[in-house]
Write a protein that binds this DNA or RNA. Structure first.
Lengths: 190, 190
DNA sequence: ATTAGACTGATTTCGTATTTGAGTCGAAGG
DNA sequence: CCTTCGACTCAAATACGAAATCAGTCTAAT
């Protein structure tokens, strides 16, 4: 890795650090610069804007979650069980990640366009994973009621359900039995 | 019906009319009074407060929806099919009711306590209906995976899913195929 | 190529003056 | 009495202008 990337990485680390603590709106570029031990305009030498830094920071967090989640579900063979675990993990993991959760909850004001873009990215990632799991389930004939051509919409719906539950039942998300009912409901039906 | 109730009803009608048009925050007591052809303080003779009027108006709307919904699902015998129709109707009906939808979407600012109370009432109504359907399904052995003691939590989760979808997928709720996937997912599983 | 410090202008914040509107009251018509 | 009203109050919302903040730029110095 060259010097350039080293510094970009250092800035990102500082950014994640302060975003974690203060959120998108409350952290200033100076906060990030100070935490990185650099001048403010130095940040602009490496990144185009605050939004670009935020996007990069968010993406790294998302990658970390994705890596953890994939590590867990890859060990499971049954697609049904995979999906169950996936939903349960996502429901708890996203909430734990304080830099992502406000995003999901829509707690960020201002610049809706940008935020929507980031949120969309999050959705796309989740939908991709769910779709992958669903495809496996269809191929192994474990998901009887789902048809190949419904795959996209089904993934969209399932992520929608997850997101909705995050928004609506977030207070009670630590209730294991409830999570179990949710996952069973989706995989087994009533 | 005595004169007293007549006037209360007339005020409520006016209230529903203006609430429908302007929402809770933007309609003033004077608006309601004017629409009812009465003086403002007259309203206070019949109702304790603006909130009481709003609550009464909302309850009437809710009752109307409930009556329509019940009329439809009572004609269906299979609990599974009942629940399917129930979810589909609720998803479309609530959205159509412009006085209720902002409530569900949390678009009302100020006096959170009061709004939460009303929202809770809405949830309770929905949960009661869902619970009823689920109970029938358990008794007729149509819902294999659901156990009697999970009934409360299951109803809560299903309403949570409906609410979440209303919040999150509201843009695309007119997509019939998607609604079908949602209902099938819940009743049949994958 | 890299960094910093000073600068700019658009946006936010803040303090205050003004208006609005829910709820009260006393009086008056029926 | 029962019902209705217009005038009143006071807390909260709003409008607004001044002051501060901060993303992003520019220039100059390594």
């Amino acid at each position: 890795m060259n010097k350039d990337d080293e510094i970009k990485k250092a800035i990102l680390l500082a950014a994640k650090h302060v975003f974690q603590k203060w959120g998108l709106n409350k952290t200033t570029m100076e906060d990030i610069a100070h935490d990185a031990g650099k001048g403010k305009s130095t940040l602009y030498y490496y990144y185009k804007s605050k939004e670009e830094i935020f996007e990069a920071a968010t993406n790294e967090e998302l990658n970390n979650i994705a890596i953890r989640v994939r590590a867990i579900i890859e060990q499971i063979k049954s697609p049904k069980e995979k999906l169950k675990r996936y939903i349960a993990i996502t429901l708890t993991e996203i909430k734990k990640t304080t830099s992502i959760y406000p995003l999901v909850k829509g707690e960020i004001k201002g610049n809706t366009k940008f935020i929507d873009k980031i949120r969309k990215q999050l959705d796309n990632r989740e939908e991709a994973i769910v779709k992958e799991i669903l495809k496996q389930g269809i191929n192994s004939n474990e998901f009887n009621f789902l048809k190949e051509e419904q795959l996209d919409k089904a993934a969209n719906v399932i992520v929608g359900i997850i997101r909705g539950l995050e928004l609506y039942l977030f207070l009670e998300m630590d209730d294991e039995e409830k999570i179990d009912i949710i996952t069973s409901l989706i995989t087994e039906g009533l």
